[in-house]
Amino acid sequence: MGDLGRLLKESWSLVEENQDKVAGYFYARMFLSNPELRELFPVYLEAQRTRLLRAIVTAIQTIEDPDRFDSYLHALGRDHRKFHVEPEHFEVAGGALLEALRHYGGEQWSIEYDQAWADAYTVISTKMIAGAAADKNPPSWHAEVIAHERRAHDIAVFTVRPLQPLEFRAGQYLSIECPQYQPRLWRTYSPANAPRRDHTLDFHVRALGAGWVSGALVRRLAVGDMLRLAAPMGSMTLDRRSTRDTVFVAGGTGLAPVKSLLEELTRYNRTRWVHVFFGARTRDELYDLADLNRLAARYPWLSVVTACSDDPTFPGERGTISEVVARYGPWNEHDFFVSGSGAMVRSSLRTLAELQVPSIRIKYDTFTDY
C-alpha cells in the first residue's frame, strides 16, 4: 500500500484548502446524475459534508494499517445502512468524488493521482459494502426516551431504551436522529454508560449555536419521544490486556465516553490507577461532577481533577484542561484517552506530545455537536 498511500496524501494536499468545496461539488454531481439519491440525505448538507471529509481523511490515514483500515470501513458501511444506501449507489458516489477531486486538483492533478483514487475507492467501497452485508442488525434502532434532565442552560442528560437490543462497546459513538423534530439529520454522540442488561443508554448533549439536532435534544426532547439510533462506531475502547495506569482527559460533554469507559473499569479493574481530568469554562458546565465524585469516593484507584478556564472564583484548578494535565505527571508510562471539542483535543494532543507521551498510547475522539 506504500505507493498508493503516498499518492493519496500527495494529491489530497492539492485540494485540502478547498475541501469544503470538494464536498459540495461531490454532492452536487451525485444528485445531478441521480436525483433520487437526494431523498436519502437531509435538507441541509453542512454536517454531511464534514462527515464525508472526515471519512476521506481517516481512510487516507489508515490505508497503510490494514487492521484499522478494515475495521473502520466495515463500521462505516454498517453505519451507512441508516441512509438505505444500496451497493449500486457506491459507483455513482465514486464517479462524483473523482470529478470533484479532478476539478479542484487543477493543473497539477495527474493520471497517477486519478488511478490512485480510483483504486483506493474500489477498495474502500468493497469493504464498506462487505461491512453492510455482514451486519445482521437492523439498519437503525427505534428508541424511547425514558428520562430527560437539564443539567445546565445548554446541557441535557437523557436516557433511551431501544426497542431491540443494541450492542456496543464502552467508548464508542453512534448517530442519533430526531424524526419528529429534524428528520434525516443525524449527529454523532457517545453513550455515557457501558452496556447494561436492560439495554438502556445515557447521552450527554450540549446545544451549540444554531445546532438543529443538539438544540432539539436539549430543549425539546421529552419523555415518551422516539429517536432513531444507528450502528456504533469508533475505536476509543479499553484494552483489557494493558496493565498501565490510565488518564482520561475530557472537555465538556466529551465526558460521556469517559463515563462509559469508567463504568467498564469499575466491573473488573483492581490494579490500575485511573486519573480523570474534567475541564469546562465555568463551574456550571461541570454538569456531572457530583456523579464523578461519588465514583471517586467508591473506588480507591480513581482520582478526579476538575478545571475551569473562565471562572475566576472556581476553587479548583484554573486554565484549560490540557494546561492542567501538564502540571501533573509524569505521564510517559500511562495510557491516555482524550475526548472533547476539536480545539480541546488538538490542544491536548500537542501537550501530550510535548510531555513525550508515545502517540501509540493515546486514543481520542473529536466531537462536534450541531
Rank of each mutant, 00 (worst) to 15 (best):
I360F: 08
R196D: 00
T266Q: 03
Q48W: 04
V305Q: 11
A192Y: 07
A75M: 12
L227M: 05
E285L: 15
I321A: 05
V43G: 02
R361H: 13
T50A: 14
V205H: 09
T188H: 12
R68T: 15
A156R: 07
E64T: 14
R272C: 01
G234I: 09
A152Y: 02
F26A: 02
G279T: 10
P139G: 02
R361E: 12
G77P: 11
V345K: 04
R350K: 14
I146L: 10
S140R: 13
D245F: 06
E36C: 02
G319Q: 08
Q108K: 15
L98S: 08
D369L: 13
E36M: 10
S71M: 11
D365R: 00
K259P: 00
A297K: 14
C178Q: 06
L52R: 04
E17N: 10
Y287C: 14
Y364L: 02
V15G: 04
R78A: 07
P300N: 05
V338G: 07
T200L: 01
Y113I: 07
E86Q: 15
L45V: 04
V305H: 10
M128T: 11
S190T: 10
S260P: 07
L286K: 09
A55I: 08
R244C: 06
D65P: 01
D291F: 03
D365Q: 06
D65S: 14
V218T: 11
G209Y: 06
L295T: 00
E64Y: 05
E39F: 02
R267I: 01
A170D: 07
F168Q: 03
G24Q: 13
V305K: 12
V145I: 11
V276I: 12
A96T: 09
H199Q: 15
V345R: 07
S348W: 06
R294S: 10
L98M: 14
L208P: 00
I63L: 12
R350H: 12
R29N: 15
Y72R: 01
L227S: 02
D311Y: 07
R151V: 05
R294C: 04
E333Q: 15
M226H: 08
R51Y: 09
D20G: 13
F158T: 10
G319P: 09
T368F: 10
H204C: 02
L238S: 09
R318V: 02
H148L: 09
A280F: 07
G279E: 11
D310K: 10
H204A: 02
F367A: 00
A230I: 11
A132L: 05
I111S: 02
L352Q: 01
L355E: 10
A222S: 14
T368N: 12
E17K: 13
A23C: 08
L76A: 05
A353N: 11
E46N: 04
Y189I: 09
G5C: 08
Q356H: 13
L97A: 08
F41N: 07
L185M: 11
K259L: 15
R184S: 01
V85K: 06
T266A: 01
L221Q: 11
R196W: 00
